[in-house]
Design a protein around this nucleic acid. Structure first.
Lengths: 212, 212
DNA sequence: TAATACTTACTGACTGGTCAGTAATCAATA
DNA sequence: TATTGATTACTGACCAGTCAGTAAGTATTA
């Protein structure tokens, strides 16, 4: 067995300090999401990242630190994007709400990051600080952002008054269910995300726009 | 230290073949729900059941078998109850729907068994047969049952036609979210289940009863 | 009813394998 | 050749599953 092209032979010990953390965080997401925290071997994370286990410890102090940083890395940027949309001064509440839901589905439910909720649900009991971080820094922030959009719609007479208490039911729940479905049941019955998203938006706006 | 009443002194090695499986299944639910599958030690399950680890193997062939039987034990009876309600010939669709949702919240979301969804979500990827069992024998069955109630309401002119495709969004999602919240975030922000249930029912019926 | 033989639920020490974390070593770059 | 990114061999803790032994309970006999 000879390598006809020496250029293509596997490079060993290549030093890429700047890129490693991101590669490890991506591999970690993939492996943790399949096996859970306790079920994941760092050897497998390393293999998927194309490095050896020892290298992980050059960038992350422990398995637990890696897990925590991975969650933050894969959820905070998307959250900030939704907040940015909410800060736009112009536009009806309906348009803004549609944009925000679109980001939730396109950047969170449809991407690699869709397994993050599953991981929080799985490991939240054993890592209370992780659950609290997610509660404070993701759920509360997302609620506040969506609440502000709804409030704006109520103030402008677009939405009914009593819709201000619906967020968990009407906004968060279907998106969470979609993410979970994708992670767990998609192999048995693939979710038509486009249609699901459409129904979600229709139902929500139908509820919001009725009179109080 | 003396036992004044010898009758009350702790009984060790008491033989109770008929009660053991149930006790083990209860202990398993409690420990698995906290630690997940891989993170759970059978020594801890045994300790909680008040027996030794070896005894578990007298009733269950392996950790995996115990886990699977536990899920079935804690979910199937409630499901059958909901199906029974759906089979009642009398009553409006709204009344039946309210009864069924009540059972979902009182017998599933409010009880020990509320951690079952969390466990399926956590372990479904690593136990595909478990995920498929839950999909086929719980989700599909529950959907069919609720769908039948909605269909009855549509046929009687109580509900709008296009509500037949809403189940995942409007019925399953909020209840699932409630169960997850109870398992993961309740310690940070306890869910007022009564109010949550009420909002869920109101939202759902508001959506169902509008005209097509 | 007492002594003896037998059954079986249960125990807990042990084994073999697994894996997080470490330390000695290698090798690419400047 | 000094620095440092990366590898590899190793350790020690941990745990699922096993099995020889114990003692509670039952049947049999005298």
């Amino acid at each position: 067995m000879t390598n006809k092209s020496p250029v293509l032979k596997k490079l060993r010990n290549v030093r890429r300090k700047d890129q490693r953390p991101g590669e490890i965080l991506r591999a970690a997401l993939e492996v943790f999401s399949i096996n859970g925290y306790a079920g994941t071997r760092l050897d497998d994370v390393a293999k998927r990242a194309g490095i050896s286990k020892g290298t992980i410890y050059l960038y992350f102090n422990s398995k637990e630190v890696l897990f925590n940083e991975m969650v933050r890395h894969w959820i905070l940027p998307q959250l900030e994007k939704i907040e940015q949309i909410g800060k736009q001064p112009a536009g009806s509440a309906e348009v803004i709400l549609r944009k925000q839901l679109k980001v939730i589905y396109e950047d969170m439910v449809s991407t690699k990051a869709s397994c993050i909720p599953k991981l929080i649900i799985s490991e939240g009991t054993r890592f209370p600080e992780l659950a609290e971080f997610y509660y404070q820094e993701v759920i509360i922030r997302a609620h506040k952002t969506m609440h502000e959009t709804v409030r704006r719609g109520v103030a402008a007479g677009e939405f009914r008054q009593d819709a201000l208490n619906w967020q968990l039911h009407a906004i968060l729940s279907p998106a969470l269910t979609a993410a979970i479905w994708k992670s767990v049941f998609d192999r048995f019955s693939p979710l038509d995300l486009k249609a699901y998203f459409q129904t979600h938006v229709d139902l929500l706006l139908h509820g919001l726009k009725g009179k109080s």
